[in-house]
Design a binder for these strands. Structure first.
Lengths: 281, 281
DNA sequence: TGAATTACGTAAGTTTATTACAAAAAGGAC
DNA sequence: GTCCTTTTTGTAATAAACTTACGTAATTCA
């Protein structure tokens, strides 16, 4: 799902726009806010072209007609991402860098909202809740995510461990039982080491859950897959959004679980909070 | 700028909505995303009312007809500030839980956009870039953040280490020099252990940077403070958004640094990428 | 119970967007 | 340059969507 396009593409850099298309684009770009409140007729007149020309441009840009174009444009403007999800440039000032990063995060967060199926979350939490113990496995950028998950799930009173070390992971995977859950975290879903470990865990009978893009090798070796997709795939910035997405998914799982466990958890949390007070200055 | 109206008002709390209005509202609220792609006819049918009823509701809500309503709704949805920052309830279904979490993330991300001063980012990156080595310190929920930062900054060719262990942190802090940067990560800014370590590091002459709420004890002991604030402060969910914010700030720092370092970094990244290929299946 | 008010739907009317087709312009080949 | 092909653009007809006007049903309050 491409999240940022219209205003960029209207500039004509990525698409081959005809003379008339550019006339329309110029009008829209001059005041996008105004454009979304205009009818196709007004816009066409203002740009000095015919209505079908405007309509054709909309379709060329991937929209389903003019109203759809207005809708998408409105969204793009409101989320402030007209700022871009083009890439960073060395000339960007700090404020711009901040905005670009934050808006790319927002976009990814938004997109998993749509990509995540409630069913998969439910399946995953069902497995986790009834487990004797839970293991999180992640390597590289996903290592910290696994550790974060460990920290988060620790409050539930079920034994939780995260492993980021290949050998340790392997050891654990071969020892898992039908009552253990193993969560494998990987953005690419293609890291051999983690795929092999997931396969091993599944063979051991464990309840394997993949936090990864569905359709990848890792996904194939997991009982349940929680789909983690991002739009962007830039050299420099790929790992950024992927972690945030993984964390968000972990949050969702943990929250769902907390809600289902109910009172028990709250008691744990209160106890933890009380004991943490003394560590504060 | 009032950012959230339509969806709130549709709930009927602020406005007096008629029976039919509520039927329409229910349909829209159930899936706003779908609503904006529907014609007034479909929506009316689905809600079991007539088209003018829908139209009248739109006007009642301050819109200039149905298309205008769709437009405004689309903007509201895309900026993510819809859906509640109310708390979770045990009765929430999975879709609702997902939405609540994601929107609370979006809100926090949005708010640091405003709270973060470009100046502080620049000061911090200036310190980091000219450092002989960089240390990240975090405990508890901030531990994984520190590790993540380590992973991220490793690409810059400067020695980077993260420590999550109190004793190890203390050791390092007492050994730091004027040419080393030490980044302390803490949401509360009041965890004694980390505050003490920051104090120690500053005494050692190190370039101390705090990723924490400004005004806290930790902030006082750091040369540069990158302000990390969140709005919410719920028992159950505090740690969630704070980590995301910390990560976002780390991303910003890393990106800013990458941009300033330029070619060098790209070379490193290419090399890393190439070498990672062989680990993929 | 009855009058007044509000809510609602039907149907007609108007605006808006789309499609089909034809004319014009641009680009190539000879 | 001329002819042919391809692309671009506009005109006109059509269809879809939205709005308005009006009349009926429901509700409220006396």
């Amino acid at each position: 799902m491409n999240t940022t396009q219209l205003l960029d593409r209207l500039s004509g850099k990525t698409d081959k726009l005809s003379k008339s298309d550019l006339k329309v684009a110029a009008v829209v770009l001059r005041d996008p806010q105004a454009a979304i409140h205009q009818s196709i007729a007004k816009l066409a007149t203002e740009a000095g072209v015919s209505e079908p020309t405007v309509n054709r441009l909309c379709r060329k840009l991937g929209c389903n007609g003019y109203p759809d174009f207005k809708l998408k444009l409105a969204q793009e403007i409101s989320r402030g991402s007209h700022l871009f999800s083009e890439n960073m440039e060395a000339s960007d000032d700090t404020r711009t860098v901040i905005n670009k990063i934050l808006s790319s995060i927002e976009q990814s967060v938004n997109s998993i909202g749509q990509a995540t199926s409630p069913a998969s979350i439910e399946e995953a939490t069902d497995l986790l809740m009834s487990s004797k113990s839970i293991y999180f496995f992640g390597m590289g950028a996903s290592g910290p995510v696994a550790l974060d998950a460990q920290h988060k799930f620790a409050r539930f009173g079920i034994p939780v461990v995260a492993h980021t070390d290949f050998i340790n992971q392997r050891m654990m995977c071969s020892m898992l039982t039908e009552e253990d859950s193993a969560v494998f975290i990987s953005y690419t879903g293609r890291t051999k080491a983690i795929v092999d470990n997931a396969e091993l865990a599944t063979k051991s009978g464990a309840r394997t859950i993949g936090l990864t893009r569905s359709g990848t090798p890792l996904a194939k070796h997991c009982r349940v897959v929680v789909n983690a997709v991002t739009a962007e795939d830039t050299d420099l910035f790929t790992p950024m959004t992927s972690r945030i997405i993984h964390l968000a998914l972990v949050d969702i799982l943990a929250t769902k679980m907390a809600l289902q466990l109910g009172d028990e958890v709250e008691k744990n949390i209160k106890a933890i909070k009380t004991n943490l007070q003394s560590t504060r200055s």
